[in-house]
Simulated assay, not measured.
Amino acid sequence: MKVSKNEILFIYDSSDMQQREGLAYAKSLRHYEVKELDVQNDSITQLQLSNLSEKLGVTAKELIRVDNESHFSEVMDLDGHDMLDYLTSNLKMLKTPIVVYYDHAKFIGSQYELMKEDGINSVSNVQTSRTMKQRKEE
């Protein structure tokens, strides 16, 4: 799960339409090359999950997606190592989407979040007619 400075790793669940849209937005970023990891089809090791939780600044238990409360309570009784073992075998339970940078990682709340960070939505140098009119008056 090595990520270079000009790359991001987008971890997502392809069964979720919004997360697939998030991947598409991530691939449109100007400043990063995007690698992807789909929890439906790919695998990840315990060590990679451990590194991921460190980069996110969360415990292994906080990596679990909370969908089914009864199942969740059984899983939450596991200790850190067993939790990582469980997640390795049940990667679909990983809370996604996650973006991994070379030095940190974060959970993504919106598919537009990455675009804002990349500066795509920042103010451009396009002059409006008002700006041009103000310059003529000066």
Rank of each mutant, 00 (worst) to 15 (best):
K2Y: 13
V3G: 03
S4D: 15
K5I: 00
N6D: 15
I8Q: 05
I11A: 03
Y12V: 00
S15Q: 09
S15M: 07
D16P: 04
M17D: 11
M17A: 15
Q18A: 10
Q18P: 02
A24Q: 05
A26N: 07
A26G: 14
K27M: 05
L29C: 07
L29N: 03
E33M: 06
V34H: 11
L37K: 03
D38Q: 00
V39E: 02
Q40A: 15
N41H: 13
S43N: 09
I44W: 15
Q46W: 00
S50P: 00
S53E: 12
S53F: 05
E62H: 07
L63Y: 01
L63V: 02
I64Y: 09
V66Q: 09
D67C: 02
N68S: 07
H71F: 13
H71E: 15
D77C: 08
L78F: 07
G80Y: 02
D82N: 14
D82G: 04
D85H: 14
Y86R: 03
L87N: 13
L91A: 10
P97G: 01
I98R: 05
I98Q: 05
V100I: 11
V100D: 01
V100Y: 06
Y101L: 11
D103K: 08
D103P: 02
D103A: 12
F107L: 02
I108T: 13
G109W: 10
S110W: 05
S110Q: 04
Q111H: 12
Y112T: 13
D118M: 10
N121S: 02
V123T: 15
S124Q: 14
T128V: 00
T128W: 10
S129E: 13
S129R: 06
R130G: 05
R130S: 12
T131L: 10
Q134H: 04
R135E: 11
K136S: 11
E137R: 15
E138S: 14
